[in-house]
Amino acid sequence: MPVELRRQLAEVYHLPLKELLPAAWRLRLKNFPPVLGLATPGSKHYDSGDHRNHRRLFVTISITGQGCRLQCEHCRGELLKSMYPATTPAALLELGRQLKDGGCRGVLVSGGADLGGRVPLLPYLEALAGLKGLGLKVIVHTGLADLATARGLKNAGVDQVLLDIIGDRETARRVYHLEMDPADYGAALENLLSAGLKVVPHIVAGLNFGRLAGELEALYQVLSRDCRDLVLVVLTPLPGTPMAGITPPPPAAVGRLLATARLAGPRLNILLGCARPAGRHRLWTELYALRAGVNGMAYPHEATVARARHLGLKPFFSDLCCSLL
């Protein structure tokens, strides 16, 4: 089966795009209702003719503040700067109370990684359970979680866990500074799944300095396990990082990956996540994603929403994380 699945992924991926996209679209129509989930969580302002988001309805929290031991090449801690800091369990629970009182419905608890690629969650398990006790939706970004952390998160009652899957050893070393191979990411995924958690794997297209390398293997790691959801995001060059001037993968390449995921995972809930380049790249990526048969996306362009309606889809908006669509 592993050899067969890898062969299937490679064969599908290399189909001509003019065959790949229509086949993916037909499969989407066959297996899913004609609706398109659109996520607009409060980490970014969103205001279109269709919807204006509530900035405090869903927020992102860093349990390490702006600190990250790994200092990955694509981020260098920049993504942590926009998050609410809560660097002790008591601070996390108090922040949760304040957010809940302000109308918040859910949180993503994340943070910088340690030198093993793990978000240091073990001291926060009781506080995470406390957030659930407040009635909040709680999603956790784990990094390479071990079994003890996975079981602790299950006992805390978190709603979902998010895990980036790297399908290329060179990418893990060059970008994340980790001597890990795809099997290590598969093992972390197994830890989370075996604990009974709802896991939403993420794949970053172009993570290796804009070059596609290992995305199909990452997709294999997801499809070879009992995963029902997948979020694909696209490398977004950030100022202040070594990748600031990098050219991300073109929209057509992103569309090819999404269509491959759809054909290889006919009933997989596939989402285009919030991290992707702005401008025309954003719009064209979304349009390719629609044709590739995604179930939803984050922060859609107005033209994408109009195109979805033209294709017969019924868009609906949610101010929660796209993984909850």
Rank of each mutant, 00 (worst) to 15 (best):
284 W>T: 14
313 L>D: 13
285 T>I: 12
314 K>M: 09
316 F>D: 10
280 R>K: 07
292 A>S: 09
317 F>V: 14
288 Y>L: 03
310 H>M: 03
286 E>P: 01
309 R>F: 09
284 W>F: 14
288 Y>E: 01
314 K>N: 14
290 L>E: 04
292 A>H: 04
284 W>E: 11
294 V>H: 02
300 P>Y: 03
310 H>S: 05
288 Y>W: 03
312 G>V: 07
287 L>M: 07
312 G>E: 00
320 L>P: 14
290 L>N: 05
318 S>N: 12
318 S>K: 12
292 A>C: 07
307 R>G: 04
281 H>G: 12
295 N>F: 00
316 F>E: 12
282 R>M: 06
289 A>Q: 04
286 E>Y: 02
287 L>N: 01
305 V>D: 08
293 G>Y: 03
283 L>C: 08
290 L>Q: 06
293 G>L: 06
303 A>G: 04
291 R>Q: 10
289 A>E: 03
298 A>Q: 10
288 Y>S: 00
295 N>Y: 01
297 M>H: 01
320 L>W: 08
280 R>V: 02
291 R>I: 11
316 F>R: 14
290 L>I: 10
291 R>A: 15
285 T>M: 05
320 L>V: 14
320 L>D: 11
309 R>W: 11
304 T>C: 04
317 F>P: 15
301 H>L: 01
320 L>H: 14
296 G>Y: 02
285 T>Y: 05
285 T>V: 13
320 L>A: 13
286 E>V: 03
313 L>Y: 15
294 V>W: 02
297 M>C: 00
295 N>H: 04
290 L>R: 04
280 R>G: 00
281 H>K: 14
299 Y>L: 13
316 F>Y: 15
298 A>N: 11
312 G>A: 00
316 F>H: 15
290 L>V: 10
284 W>G: 02
296 G>V: 05
297 M>A: 00
285 T>K: 06
320 L>F: 11
291 R>S: 13
292 A>T: 06
319 D>I: 11
290 L>F: 04
290 L>H: 03
310 H>C: 02
300 P>F: 02
282 R>G: 03
287 L>Y: 01
308 A>E: 11
311 L>V: 15
305 V>Q: 07
303 A>W: 00
304 T>R: 02
303 A>D: 09
293 G>N: 07
285 T>F: 07
310 H>R: 01
308 A>H: 11
285 T>R: 06
299 Y>Q: 10
315 P>R: 13
293 G>H: 05
300 P>W: 02
308 A>S: 12
287 L>I: 08
286 E>L: 02
317 F>I: 13
280 R>N: 05
300 P>H: 04
